[in-house]
Each structure stands twice: as C-alpha cells, then as structure tokens.
Amino acid sequence: MSTPVLSVRDLVVEIPTRHGILRPVDHVSYDIHAGEILGVVGESGAGKSMTGNAVIGLLDPPARITVGQILLSGEPVHALKGEKLRRLRGKRMAMIFQDPLTSLNPLLTVGEQLEETILEHMNVSQAEARRRAVAQLEEVGIPAAEARIGSYPHEFSGGMRQRVVIALALCAEPELVIADEPTTALDVSVQAQIIALLKRLCRERGVAVMLVTHDMGVIAEAADRVAVMYAGRLAELGPVREVLTRAHHPYTAGLMASTPLASQGRKRLVQIPGAMPRLGNLPQGCAFHPRCDRAQDVCRRDPGPTLDAYRGRAACWFPLNTEEKAAT
C-alpha cells in the first residue's frame, strides 16, 4: 500500500477550561489516500470540524493537540509552527469553508486573491500567476473567467463564490483539501454542481479530500469511505456503501434510520432518544450508551475498543450486522 496523503494517528485535541479538560477529539485515527474522498459525518459538536482544523493547524488556543500524530505524505506536521506551518498551508494542504462570503476578502478582487496565493507558494512570474488564476477559474466552471477575474466577491452569486473558494484552495496544487461543510449554505441544484466539481477535481488531480458534512446524502454521493464521529470519538469507519447500508455501530444505524428517506412509508420516523451529551458532561463508558438500546453493563463501564485505521470498523462492544461477514 502506498503512503497515504494524510495519516492521522491517535489524535487527541484538548481544551482546558475552568470546569476541567474537554476533549473535542478523542483518540481518532484515519488515513486518506491520493484521489480518495473521506467523508466525515456527525452531529453538531461531534468533533468533525475540530479534527479538520487540527490537521491544518487552525486550532484556536486554548485548544491544542496533546497526543497523537498527523502525517502528511509520511512527514509529521502536527508540531509545525509559524513560518514552517505557513509554507505548508495553502501549498500542500488547503481548506474550503462553509460560508464562501466570509472566506474571501471583500476588499480584493478574486484575481488579486488568487494571484497572491499563487505568487506566495509557486515560483512564477506575475504574468504567469495571472494566467494560472484565469485557468483555475475556468477549471472550476466560472464562465468568462478572463472578464470576471477583476470582480469583487460580492459580485458573484453564492454558488459562484464557492467555486472561487475552491479555485483558491486548488491554485497552489495541494495534496490534501479539507472541505468543511462546503455545500451547506447552498441550494440543492448548486450543491449538486459543487459536489460534481469536487469529485471531478479529486479524480483528475489525485487530490486527497476530507469532506466534513452532516448530510448523509452528500456523503453517499461523494465519498469513497466514511468516518462517523460521535462525541469526539470515531464511532465507525469504512467504505461508504458498507457503512451506510450495513452499519456496524448502533449510532450509525440510528442515524441512517432516522432520516425521512429511510423511514419512507412509515407514519412515524425512527428516532434516537435524547441528544448528544455535551463534552463537559460525557457519560462513563461508551458515550452513546444512554441512547443505545443494545447497551449492556460493559458499555457503561468501558469506553469500548478504539478504532484503529486498519483494524475493526465500529467502536462498539456489540456491533450490528456482523454475522454474515463472519460466515464469508
């Protein structure tokens, strides 16, 4: 197996507060290979964005990585600081945020923003940077790129703005792109366009993509593998079709069943009782056990097997849907 583009090993992010230490990311491990889209799903507060921010070094203090490693193509990057981290960000890994309006500078034209990034990270002339900026805008599907490169962000529609953000992320040819809810602020038809664009760029350029979202439909269509997070821990990790159709973790199964589509024809939706616990108030043992109908004594005592990137699929003592697999 080739070296994965991104390798997260046993990552722990902690936030010291007056009421004790919170762990928004708790012993998380996964890999993303070149040309692969890893979907990260979970409810709000599950730690999915925090994982992405930790990878790219955007944790806001006092949040910090206390344990674990982040390897970018085999090189450890979790301890980089200052200038070294800056040379890496935007060049070898890039981020696409949820709200395209707040991730662009309203006072600079999109051309200036693209050129600045290209000049910063690539050894090219001003004229070449401009040529690349236009080519990049064309590649993400902005019509009349040559004419629009002098426009300001507010002159673009929401979908077009998100395309500009994607162009900005890709213009220094990164190996890894972290997309944090890239389509949540967009309409359905525009969302379909952006997802198709992400998939095409991932395939053509061999970029590794970490797609953070709460929308199971988006995951099903875009991702190759999916990581389900719950209360800071990885609940389940596996190929997307496997996980979504034959979930091993009761939380994944509940999440899938509670979407209106899966409950079609039923009068009431399947519901998971309760809500995700707050980080400061995690139950002992498996964080999901108060909401789980399969919970037994061991679940209340012991947090369950942590999930390693290559062993096991669900961090659960009593996983579902495993019988047939054992037979084959």
Binding site: S157, G159, M160, D187, V188, S189, V190, Q191, A192, Q193, I195, A196, K199, D215, M216, G217, V218, A220, E221, D224, V240, R241, L244, M256, T259, L261, A262
Partner: peptide
C-alpha cells in the same frame, strides 16, 4: 424534475450525473 434529480440521495453511491445547469 431537476430538483428531484439534483437532491442528494442516500442510495446513490458514487452517482455520476450531469448536475443541473445555471442558477436561479
């Protein structure tokens, strides 16, 4: 019809469709 086709579906693994053209 366009809206239905564009909506992400949970059974559409790796679906490759032509996304709708244009915007509102």
């Amino acid at each position: 019809q366009m809206l239905f086709d564009a909506a992400p579906r949970m059974d559409a693994f790796g679906r490759e469709v032509e996304p709708p053209k244009g915007e509102i």
